[in-house]
Amino acid sequence: MDAAVRELSYAQAIQEAMAIAMDMDERVFLMGEDIGVYGGAFQVTGDLVERYGTDRVIDTPISELGGAGVAVGAAVTGMRPIFEFQFSDFATLGMEQIVNQAAKMRFMLGGEVSVPLVMRFPAGSGTGAAAQHSQSLEAWLGHVPGLKVIQPATPHDAKGMLLAAVADPDPVMIFEHKLLYKMKGHVPEGHYTVPIGKAEIRRQGRDLTIVATSIMVQKALDAAATLEGEGIDIEVVDLRTIRPIDRQTVIDSVKKTSRLLCVYEAVKTLGIGAEVSALVAESEAFDYLDAPIVRLGGAETPIPYNPDLEKATVPQVPDIIAAARDLVKGVR
């Protein structure tokens, strides 16, 4: 197969990254619930247990708090764990170890230790799994100094950012939208990294900047393609990392387009859109704005089971089109 056009799914890309990481560094190992013979709830670890054995692909009991803590302890003492939460919602059970321990250990000990830990969180709605299996909690962790928090939006970035995360000496939290797992895209073979803390401009445009995260990047691109037919030229910024945020890319884009729309799936209030809006409002880009900043985020509700309600809870392409059109046409 031509390496230049090789396509993998997002899930396969992550699996390949984990295999490469384990091949390159014998300290790397995987921990999580049902990641062995079951292959992971979303088949991300797949058959890795057959290739690397149960010593390096470890099924834990259903013990998120303890499991997260074991990963922290192993990381501090020389190993390089990649810990999978079966659903990002269960981060709530591991929060103590993530927030009080992993994030702060280096700081509290005055730099005497590092915590080279990677945690993976299958996140988001759209699968009919209802309120306790569909949340987008990345902003919770994004609020914690000491953690790095990323949301790759493509198979290419999923692999490259995971490899960057494994190489990183500090704890990196990866939020993977479950609906992206089947998304296919070009993924180079071998080892490469995509830097943490760097946004990517997915589409150049003049009239409006959409800053989107995770699955909303593709939705923003779909909206932009439609609006192109109406003569509206949209720039789409894929934030990729929510801590540390790439301020400069956002600011430069808004200075160019003079309009900002933030699109994210998590609950709108106190979410990443608030941070992006504020960083623009605080910057020199503020003077360039021709319209109020607009946020499109999740409704102020847990994710409902009913499929129509579920869809209505998070921004969809028509919502993005409408908001972008209004912004550019000056309706807002």
Binding site: A131, P304, Y305, N306
Partner: peptide, 16 residues
Amino acid sequence: FGKTTGYCKGRGGSMH
């Protein structure tokens, strides 16, 4: 079926 006559008014589904 996600209906309003359900025990959780369609908000919970099987798992709730």
